[in-house]
Simulated assay, not measured.
Amino acid sequence: MEDRYKISDPQVLKVVAHPLRARMLGLLRSEGPATASELGRRVGESSGSTSYHLRELFKNGFIEEDPERRDGRERRWRARHRYTSWNSRELADTPEGRETVKAMRLLQAGLLARMAEDFDEAEWSPAWVEAAGLSDHLFELTPEALREFAARTEELLEELAARDAGAPDARQVHLWVGGFPRVSDR
């Protein structure tokens, strides 16, 4: 699996801004290859619906057939990239791009809310309960400093993931890094 899919076309980003497609792509990334039927059961949709959305993800380079795990009757799909990225400034040059970037931002915020809601402290060890959570910071930064924060955070996460690969208590962890200037600062 490649590391990153960098999108520069708002039409391609719009494909994955669809909530069901984003969810299916996320499942292929986190749980591995699956058929349309398997994904349909997982997301509560018909295999016809998931097949359609898988074809759209395939046409736009997000997924591929899994050559290692073939099913006699159905195609098995896998994610091509570990994650998707885009440059919001580049995409925001057009009204369509701005609309798509906003849709993705709201989709991501909704996923964050769902993850926070689904986390049940009673189901996790004290170590995980203490480590998990959200924090809210307010600092004065320049755009350059915010970009540096995001880049250094990504570097640190790569280092920590490599160090913890294969550790018996390691789990997949959803992480969000974001920063927006306060609206009142316009």
Rank of each mutant, 00 (worst) to 15 (best):
L134I: 07
P33N: 13
F58S: 12
S51P: 01
A150T: 06
P126L: 09
L27T: 04
V177R: 00
R4A: 14
R89P: 01
G166T: 03
R76D: 00
N60V: 03
L141K: 02
R80C: 01
E38Q: 15
V15L: 04
A17I: 02
G32L: 11
L138R: 14
G72T: 12
D164Y: 10
E130M: 07
T50W: 01
E45Y: 11
P67N: 13
R73M: 11
P181H: 08
A145P: 00
A132H: 07
F149P: 00
S184E: 12
E99N: 11
M115V: 10
G61L: 01
M115H: 12
R69A: 10
V183S: 09
A145K: 11
E159A: 07
A116H: 06
W128Q: 13
G133N: 05
E99V: 08
S37T: 15
R182I: 10
R73H: 12
L27P: 00
K6Y: 13
D3G: 08
L106H: 03
P33L: 08
Y83W: 15
H174L: 04
G179N: 04
D66F: 08
E68K: 02
A167W: 04
L13M: 01
W86E: 08
V43L: 09
F149Y: 13
K14L: 12
E90G: 03
T94Q: 05
E96H: 08
E123A: 03
N87H: 13
Q11G: 11
D120V: 09
A116G: 03
M115S: 06
G61N: 02
V16Y: 02
P95H: 00
E90D: 07
L28S: 12
G44I: 09
E155V: 05
S135N: 05
D164T: 07
N60F: 14
R55N: 14
W176G: 03
G61A: 01
E121K: 11
G179T: 02
I63R: 01
D66M: 09
D169P: 00
E155A: 10
S46T: 15
D3R: 15
A103L: 12
V177T: 07
E123K: 05
D9N: 15
P33H: 13
R69N: 13
H174R: 04
H81C: 10
E148M: 02
E155F: 00
G61Y: 01
P33W: 13
E65C: 05
L27Y: 04
L91N: 00
E117P: 00
L112I: 10
A161W: 00
R4H: 09
